[in-house]
Structure formats: structure tokens, C-alpha cells
Design a protein around this nucleic acid. Structure first.
Lengths: 190, 190
DNA sequence: CCGATCATGTAATTAGTTACATGATTCG
DNA sequence: CGAATCATGTAACTAATTACATGATCGG
């Protein structure tokens, strides 16, 4: 319609970067850090994705970057979402079909094949799993405790939604733990 | 040590095929069907993986295939695990490090970025999610009901473990549903 | 002096999905 | 007659992870 290129990002990764940037202007480095303690827990994003998408998004007119010279530390490039970017993100949030949740669960995989394992071997795996679930739960709990301290740009609604996502993550670990107990009990009885 | 090649499969996919075959001899086609209603729910396996791995496993001496001519339907090749294969599987089950569970969750992703969405848009996504969770729950429930009817090769221990894995899947959907309710309540209040 | 943090990118590789290709038979 | 089932494979592609490459500064 206009004379600028307002095309959509090709991949989901592009929208994820766009979404992260919705929180406020950030450099690729900062985005990667933010992603690592947030969305990366339920969607795969790495530095490589971010640095790959940023120039694409800029070319499409969805973000705009500005070089910020620094002393001592390396210079950086700060990106912010454009109006077109916000529009594209909203469109994606409301209309794109992202498919169903997918789970990669090594313990389930092993248990499914585990008829050749003895009680001790199964229990070792269960204990391992419970331990990492415990650790994750603690991590998410600290995130939740810190969730209130946000930037000025972050709206009350945004904070509420993020807390709900963290609640999910915590509940999920609780479920893992509860299930491990169920498995232990069942195998002890049988 | 011997004169045969008893090397390990390179990828996890290879062990998954090996594990599926532990249930009894099957063709690639049958393995794909079995995988589709079992492990594929918590580990990615498709026909392509299976047909790719089968020859590799055979070369490594972990499975052995036998051609079975058929009339009417196409001929097939039935594979069964060798002693070396069973050993390799056990080794993998007890020693390999498969990493932590990974989740791809589109709804969480959207909610995390959803500060620009209004109540109606969020609710539409939640409803959608609840519906698919409901459907999945029902599916796993029917699997569980049928879990007793197994092949002769399947041990009582194997059946018990499979039921526990299904219990996990059902509980997980219940959790999704419960969480959706929590989100709805919280957003209605706030 | 060693490791961490800040900062940006690319390259290589592995993993995973979807499409293509073929062909007989059975069921509605 | 069209769709589904049986049956096996490959090719093309997209997605995701890990490694490589560079270089200053700061704290212990």
C-alpha cells in the first residue's frame, strides 16, 4: 500500500524477536539474554536466531536499528519496533496458526522402552529427573519473585501475563514431581 | 571384539527404532504406525527417520531384516532385534545422556507477547487451546483403555510402564486445562 | 593471568518435517 | 470412481544447535 516494504517475517523466529523487542528497545545481545531467561523455556531461540532475524526485520521495515558507540565495551546496535512491526506482531498473535504444543521428553522415552530395566536402573533415572525438575522449579520461582521489578515500558498487563506464564512453568515442574511419585508408588506395589 | 560390527547407532532416532522393535518384530510401515500412536507424542519420530535408520541398524548388526512376500498387498521386510541390539539398547537406556525435557508451547509464546491483545483475543486462544487439550486427553484415555490388549511378546512390566507413560500424558492435559482456568480467572479479576 | 561480561556475527552440522514417487487392493 | 490402506523409499527443505572467530575491559 505505501512505498515501504511492510512484508511479514518469514519464520516464527522473526516474530519472536519482534515480540521480545515489544518489551522495549534492545541490542541483539540483550535480546538473547532476555530470551534465555524467558521464551527459551518454551520456545527455541538462540543468539543465532536473533542475529539472523534482526537485519531481515529491519529490511522489512518492522524494526529500526541505531548504532550506539560505547567506550570500554564494544559498540552496539539498539533496535526498536516500528509501527508496522507492531501491526505485524498483532496480526501474527491473533491470526497465525502455530500448531499444537510439542514435548521432547527423554524420561518418558526411556520408560516406554524400559521393560528391560530393573527397579534400580529405573529409580536412578527417576531420581535424576526429579532433581532437575526441582532445580527448574526453584529457578522459575526466583523469576516470579523478580517479575514485579520491570522496566518503565512494561505495562501492568504485560507483567500479569508474564506471571501467568511463570505460574505455568512452576505448575509443570510440580506435575513432573507428582508424577514421579506416582510412578515410584506404582512400581513399588507391582 | 568379535568379527561383526557391533557399533552403536549414531543418532537417538536409531535407538528409538531399536526400542520400538523391542516390542516385537515389525516392518518399517508397522513401526511408523506404532510410533505414531506412542513415542511420537513425546519424541519426534516419523516414517523418514524409521526408513532411514533401519538399514543403518542392520549394517551395525543390531537388527536383522527378512523379506516377506505377500499377495494382494506389497511385499514387506520384517525386522527383529539381535542380541547385540538388545545390549546396545540397554546400554543406551542406562548410560546415554539425553538432556532435559524440551517444550514448544505456542500458547505460552503468544501470551508472553500478548500485552497488546484484548480480553476477547486472549480468550479465543485459550478456548482453542482448551479444546485441543480436551481432544488429546480423550485420545490418550482410549489408548489407556486399550493398553491391556497387547501382543504375546509384551511383558507385564512393559504394559505397566506404558500405562504410566499414558497416565503422564493424561495428567499433562489435565494440567493444561486447569491452567487455562487459572488464567481466565486471573484475567477476569485483574 | 584467568575467567566472566560485553558485543556481533558466520559457518558448519544435526535434527526434523514435508513433499515426491509408485502401485495394487479394498471399501463405500 | 475416489479415498483409504498397505508398503517402501528418497529428496528437498526448514528449523535448531553448536562451534568458530574476534577483541576490549574488569574483578579476583
Amino acid at each position: 500500500m505505501g512505498r515501504q516494504d511492510h512484508s511479514q517475517p518469514a519464520s516464527t523466529a522473526g516474530f519472536v524477536v519482534l515480540g521480545l523487542l515489544g518489551d522495549g528497545p534492545r541490542s541483539g545481545y540483550d535480546l538473547a539474554a532476555l530470551a534465555g531467561r524467558t521464551v527459551a523455556h518454551f520456545w527455541p531461540v538462540t543468539r543465532s536466531h536473533i542475529y539472523g532475524e534482526l537485519p531481515r526485520l529491519e529490511e522489512a521495515g518492522l524494526v529500526r536499528g541505531r548504532d550506539v558507540p560505547q567506550e570500554g565495551v564494544p559498540d552496539k546496535r539498539i533496535y526498536r519496533v516500528t509501527a508496522a512491526g507492531r501491526k505485524a506482531l498483532h496480526q501474527w498473535l491473533t491470526h497465525a496458526d502455530l500448531g499444537e504444543p510439542r514435548l521432547h521428553h527423554p524420561l518418558l522415552l526411556r520408560l516406554f522402552f524400559g521393560s528391560a530395566l530393573d527397579a534400580g536402573e529405573i529409580d536412578a533415572r527417576l531420581a535424576e529427573h526429579a532433581q532437575t525438575a526441582q532445580a527448574r522449579r526453584a529457578l522459575y520461582q526466583t523469576y516470579l519473585a523478580r517479575a514485579g521489578e520491570a522496566r518503565a515500558e512494561t505495562s501492568a498487563q504485560a507483567i500479569r501475563l508474564r506471571q501467568l506464564v511463570l505460574r505455568y512453568a512452576i505448575r509443570r515442574q510440580d506435575e513432573e514431581l507428582a508424577w514421579v511419585e506416582e510412578v515410584r508408588k506404582t512400581l513399588a506395589e507391582g
